[in-house]
Simulated scan of single mutants.
Amino acid sequence: MTDAKLDDAAIETTMLRLVAERGADKTVCPSEVARALGGPHPDGWGPLMQPVRRTAVRLAHAGRIAILRKGKPVDPDDFRGIYRLSLPAAGVTS
């Protein structure tokens, strides 16, 4: 995938699918989204981590996912470190 729009669409679709499949009160690691798209080797999924983060922030603003840190929802515009993704209003990490 070389087209940026296609990449964003693929990331969004994959992220929403993985979060939905995991279900309520469960979370997804952002690297799971990147690995689903880029494969198991870090050279494939590593470069996708920033686009995954940007997509997560956008979807959190839209209320379609929640970004969690230490099991608690965070402000999508102000979080650092390790984070997880979940369905909105879920607050328990897996």
Rank of each mutant, 00 (worst) to 15 (best):
T2Q: 08
T2H: 08
D3N: 10
A4L: 12
D7C: 12
D8C: 11
A9R: 11
A10S: 12
A10W: 07
E12C: 12
T13C: 10
T13H: 14
T14G: 02
T14S: 09
M15N: 01
M15S: 00
M15E: 02
R17V: 04
V19H: 00
E21G: 05
G23P: 03
G23S: 03
A24E: 15
A24D: 14
D25K: 11
D25M: 12
K26F: 14
T27Q: 06
V28W: 00
V28D: 01
V28C: 03
C29D: 14
P30V: 05
P30W: 00
P30S: 07
S31H: 13
S31I: 13
V33D: 01
G38N: 08
P40Y: 13
P40T: 13
D43M: 12
G44Q: 09
W45A: 07
P47S: 02
L48N: 00
Q50M: 11
R54F: 06
R54E: 14
T55V: 11
T55C: 15
V57I: 15
L59Y: 05
H61A: 10
A62C: 07
R64F: 04
I65A: 00
I65G: 00
I65P: 00
L68N: 02
L68T: 03
R69A: 06
V74G: 03
V74Y: 05
P76W: 05
P76F: 06
R80S: 15
I82V: 15
Y83C: 07
Y83F: 12
Y83L: 05
P88K: 08
P88Y: 03
P88L: 02
A90S: 15
A90E: 14
V92I: 13
T93K: 07
T93H: 12
